[in-house]
Design a protein around this nucleic acid. Sequence first.
DNA 1: GTCTATAACGGGATAGAC
DNA 2: GTCTATCCCGTTATAGAC
Lengths: 214, 214
Amino acid sequence: MTDTKTRILDAAESLIAQHGFDVSLRAITAKAGVNLAAVNYHFQSKDALIDALVARRIAPINRLRIEVLDAVEREHPEGPLPLEAVIHAFVDPPLRMPGREDIRILFGRLYGTPGEFLHRLFEPHLKPLAARFRVAFARACPELPPADLMWRMHFTIGVMVHTMSWSRIISEITGGEVNSSDTEALIERIVRFTAAGFRAAVQDAQSQQGARHA
Amino acid sequence: MTDTKTRILDAAESLIAQHGFDVSLRAITAKAGVNLAAVNYHFQSKDALIDALVARRIAPINRLRIEVLDAVEREHPEGPLPLEAVIHAFVDPPLRMPGREDIRILFGRLYGTPGEFLHRLFEPHLKPLAARFRVAFARACPELPPADLMWRMHFTIGVMVHTMSWSRIISEITGGEVNSSDTEALIERIVRFTAAGFRAAVQDAQSQQGARHA
DNA sequence: GTCTATAACGGGATAGAC
DNA sequence: GTCTATCCCGTTATAGAC
C-alpha cells in the first residue's frame, strides 16, 4: 500500500482527467480509499492539491525537454539548429508521458482552460521553458520574423495539446480507423506536420492586406 | 431593451468565456439584469441553457462553412480542390465570428473540454460537418493516406481551437509583441501553417518503425 | 411573463476524538 | 496520522405571489 498523499494525487489525477477540475473531494477521497479530511490535512485546500498534482507531472517533463534540447544544442554549437529536433524536444516528453493516459488528458485539459490556471501554474512552470525554446526555434528558423516565430510556436502547442486531449476520443469516434495507441508514430506525424508549418513561406507586409484565395 | 431570453444567453456567453462553464446562475442572472428564476423559466436547466447557447453560435458558423465549401466545389467540379480554400472554409467562419471576442474564447473552451460536451453537442453539430469536410480534404490531397488525412484535419482543428482560446492571453503575456487583433492576418497565418502541414511528406510504413532525428 | 422566497442538496473546510 | 461528525456556504431548482 502506497503513501496516502500519493494515493490522493493519483485518484485526483484520474478523476480530473475523466470529469474535469470540478470533481468533488468526496469523489477523490472515495476513489483513493482515504478519509475525506485527509486531503485537507496533507494539502491545505483543493486548489493546493491541484497545484501539487500538476507540479508533480510538469516538472519532470520540462526537465526532460530541457535536457533533450541541451543535447541538441551541444551537437550544434553554432549555426542553425535542426528544426525537427527542436520540435521533438518540445513535444515528445509530454506526449510520451509516464504510463497512464490520464495524464495526457489532464495536461490537455489544463491548456484548454485558459485564465484559471494560467497565473498559478503556467506562469511559473511554462514561462522559462517558453523563453528557452523561443531562442532555440529562432536558431532553427533564422529567417523567420519574430511574430511569425511566436505564432508558429503557438500553433505547434495547439497541435500537441489538442492531440493530447482528444487522441483517445478520436480513436473511438473513428472506430479505430485512426489509431492513437502507436505513440511513436503519432509523435512523428506531429513533428512532420508542424515542421512543415514552420517552414511555410510567410506573407510579406505588402500582400498581407488584401490577399484572398480563389 | 432586448428580449430576456437573449439577454440571459449574452450574459452567460460572456461569463463562461471569462470564467468557465461552472459559472453560477446567480452570476449570469445578475449580469443579465434579470431574475434568478428566469433562467429556469425560459430554459429548463443550466445544461439546457448551455446547449442553447452553443447551438445559437455553432449553427450559423457551420452553415457558413458549408456555404463557402459549396462555392469552392462549384468552382472546381472535378479534379483536386485548392487546399488553402478548403482550409479557409473550415477555419475562417469560427475565427472571424460575429463581433464579440467572448464567443471565440467560449468556442475554444468547448473543444478544450473533451468528454462532457462531446455527445451532447459535437455529435449532432460537428459530425456531419466533419464528414463533409473529410471528403473535401481528400479531394484536396488525393495522394494522402486516409489515416494521415484524418490526423492532419485533427491537427488543423487543434491549431484553430488553441488560437481561439489563447489569442487574447498570448497578446497579453507577450506584451503586445504578438498581436491578435488583426483577425485577417491571423487567419492567413493559420492557413499557411496548416496547408504546409497537409502537404508535408508522410513517412512510409517501412521507415515508420525506427526513425529518429539526430 | 416576471419576480420573491425558499426548498433541497452538495460542496469545501474544520474541530476534536482516537 | 487518521477518522467521525458537523458547520457553513453556494448551488440549482421550484412554488407561489404579483
